[in-house]
């Protein structure tokens, strides 16, 4: 009996560890985010560690096909231009598997980046290793990190997906302003509808 219970304990420990390691806990405010080395549409590899003098990083999980993500493309492009000079580097990461969603293949990313004149690195999460660590679940999904890659804000870009001119609260920009002045962003987390991330089958 003793042996049996010991065996059961052993098996359950194995199972717990196996399952926990498969699904990393999504980042919370205050966690340190992982760096990455991912290929952009210009063919070069990008990492946050390449930007030694950056004051912070805007990591946007987004993609080609999702209508919600599309509605934010121009706003993401403007953000990247406006904040680059202020020391904040924006990376867009496409987390979708190109087989599960052909519109989000690397070639299609190149096409879209050219069409829209993306001013930021548009990276492919090849092998889908990065988005699960962040706990991104949808596109678009934004993470604002400080210069030490500590997560300061998670969620939406603003409060009006339909029209940029009707936005009442610019969540992300407000969070950057707070970060600039050493304050805690409020809110630190926002919710929004988005397209689920398409994982490899």
């Amino acid at each position: 009996m003793k042996i049996l219970s010991a065996l059961l304990l052993f098996v359950s420990v194995i199972f717990t560890t196996a399952f926990t390691s498969n699904a990393p806990t999504p980042y919370k405010i205050g966690d340190t985010a992982t760096d990455f080395k991912l290929k952009s549409v210009d063919g070069k590899m990008y990492s946050m560690s390449d930007y030694k003098s950056a004051k912070g990083f805007i990591v946007v999980f987004t993609c080609n096909h999702c209508p919600f993500a599309k509605k934010y493309e121009d706003r993401i492009n403007d953000l990247s231009k406006n904040y680059k000079s202020k020391g904040y580097v924006l990376f867009a990461i496409n987390p979708n598997d190109p087989v599960a969603e052909p519109a989000d293949s690397f070639d299609m990313m190149k096409v879209r980046a050219k069409e829209k004149g993306f001013a930021f690195p548009y990276l492919l999460d090849e092998g889908q290793k990065i988005f699960p660590q962040y706990g991104a679940t949808k596109t678009p999904h934004v993470f604002l990190l400080d210069k030490n890659r500590v997560v300061k804000y998670i969620g939406a870009i603003d409060d009006n997906v339909d029209s940029a001119s009707d936005v009442k609260e610019k969540y992300l920009e407000n969070a950057i302003v707070a970060l600039e002045s050493g304050k805690t962003p409020s809110p630190e987390i926002t919710k929004a509808i988005g397209c689920s991330i398409k994982v490899k089958k």
């Binding site: 679940t137 949808k138 999904h141 939406a156 409060d159 009006n160 997906v161 339909d162 809110p187 926002t190 919710k191 929004a192 509808i193 988005g194 397209c195 689920s196 991330i197």
Partner: peptide
Amino acid sequence: DKDYNTWLPAVDKDWSGSIP
């Protein structure tokens, strides 16, 4: 309803907002 911050948590506090 575009006030996601209010209604998504009213459906479920842990809903990140992805559909389905």
